[in-house]
C-alpha cells in the first residue's frame, strides 16, 4: 500500500461512488416495485447519454444539427424521452411476462439490453463521442491542501465533484420521494404486496409503469453524469456491471443501501489503485466482484436487505 496515495484515492473513490450509487438506485427501484431485476439498466444509462448528446446537436456543426439545444434543454428533453421509453418498455416487454419464472424475466431484460446495444449502435454510431458539452473541462482541477497526501494536496476534477453532488442530490431526492410523497408510498406499498396494494385502491399496473419511467429518468441522469467525465460511447453500459455488486452489498430492497453500496464499490476500486503492486492495481476491474462473492457467501441479503424466509 502506498499510503501517501490513500487520501487522494479515498476522495476520488467516494466521488465515483456517487454515480455508481445513482445507477444502482434505478435498479433497486424497479426491483422493489415489481421484483424484476433489470439487467438492461446499463443500456438505458448509455441510451440516455446518447439521447442527450443527440439533443445538443449530435456532433454536427453548430446550427446544422436536426435539434440544437443547450445542455440543460437537451437534458430535460432526454429525461422526458427516457420517461416515455421506460413506460413503453414496461408495457410491451415486461407486462406480458407477469407471473413468469425468474429466469424468463431475467432473460427478457438481457434481451432488452442486447436490443438497446444494437439500436444505439445503428442510430448513433459506434465511435466514442468526445464532444459532449460538459460544463467543466476535464483539466479544471480543485486543489485542496492536505499534508501527508501525495504532493501534500488532494486534486479533484470539477467534473467529478459536480457529478458527485448531482448524483447524491438526486439520490436523496428519490429517497425522499419514496418515503414522503403519496405516489412514492403507493410504490412502496406495491412492493410489499400487490394484492393488498390493489385492495386499498392503488393501481398496481400504473405503479409498475411509473417505476420503469422513473428508472429511465434516473438512468439518463446517470448516463449524462458519466458522459461529462468520460464522453459518450457504447462502453457506458458496462457501468451497470459495477452497480450490481453495489446493489447486493447494500441489499436488494434498500434505496439508501444502494447509494451506500455505490460509495463502497467506488472506494474499493479507487483504494486498490493505491497499491504498490501492479497485480493488485490491475485487479481494480474485478475487485467489486471479489467483494460481491464475499457478500454472497457471508451475508447474501446484503447490509440492509430483507432476509428471505422460505415457505413450502
Amino acid at each position: 500500500m502506498n499510503w501517501s496515495l490513500v487520501p487522494q484515492q479515498f476522495v476520488t473513490g467516494i466521488l465515483n461512488g456517487g454515480t455508481i450509487g445513482l445507477i444502482a438506485l434505478g435498479i433497486v427501484l424497479i426491483y422493489k416495485s415489481s421484483e424484476v431485476f433489470n439487467f438492461a439498466h446499463g443500456h438505458l444509462v448509455m441510451f440516455g447519454a446518447f439521447l442527450t448528446w443527440w439533443f445538443t446537436g449530435g456532433g454536427a456543426e453548430p446550427g446544422a444539427g436536426l435539434v440544437d439545444l443547450p445542455l440543460w434543454g437537451a437534458l430535460i428533453a432526454a429525461l422526458i424521452a427516457s420517461l416515455g421509453l421506460g413506460l413503453v418498455i414496461e408495457r410491451f416487454a415486461l407486462r406480458p411476462m407477469t407471473g413468469q419464472p425468474l429466469l424468463a424475466i431475467m432473460l427478457m431484460t438481457l434481451g432488452l439490453a442486447q436490443l438497446f446495444e444494437g439500436v444505439t449502435a445503428i442510430l448513433f454510431g459506434v465511435q466514442l463521442k468526445s464532444d459532449f458539452p460538459a460544463p467543466f473541462s476535464p483539466s479544471d482541477v480543485l486543489i485542496i491542501p492536505f499534508p501527508g497526501a501525495f504532493g501534500d494536496a488532494i486534486r479533484l476534477k470539477y467534473t467529478l465533484v459536480a457529478t458527485f453532488v448531482v448524483a447524491t442530490l438526486a439520490a436523496v431526492v428519490f429517497i425522499w420521494f419514496f418515503n414522503s410523497t403519496k405516489t412514492g408510498l403507493a410504490m412502496r406499498a406495491t412492493a410489499e404486496d400487490h394484492e393488498v396494494a390493489r385492495s386499498v385502491g392503488i393501481r398496481v399496473r400504473r405503479v409498475f409503469g411509473l417505476s420503469w419511467g422513473i428508472a429511465g429518468v434516473i438512468a439518463t441522469l446517470g448516463g449524462v453524469l458519466l458522459a461529462t467525465v468520460s464522453g459518450v460511447s457504447l462502453n457506458l453500459s458496462t457501468v451497470a456491471l459495477i452497480a450490481f455488486p453495489a446493489i447486493l452489498l447494500g441489499g436488494l430492497e434498500s434505496l439508501g443501501g444502494a447509494l451506500l453500496g455505490g460509495f463502497a464499490i467506488g472506494l474499493v476500486q479507487a483504494l486498490v489503485q493505491a497499491s504498490r503492486l501492479i497485480e493488485v492495481r490491475n485487479s481494480s476491474e474485478i475487485a467489486p466482484y471479489l467483494l460481491l462473492l464475499v457478500v454472497l457467501l457471508i451475508r447474501p441479503e446484503g447490509l440492509f436487505g430483507q432476509k428471505r424466509i422460505e415457505r413450502i
Binding site: P96, G111, G118, G125, V126
Partner: peptide, 27 residues
Amino acid sequence: ELADQLLTSFRPIFFGVALMLFLIYEP
C-alpha cells in the same frame, strides 16, 4: 459511410428481438 455500425448492430438487434418474442409467445 455507415459501415461500422451496420456491420456490428444487426446481431444484437436480431438476437434481442428473437429472444424477447420467444419469451412472450413461446417460452
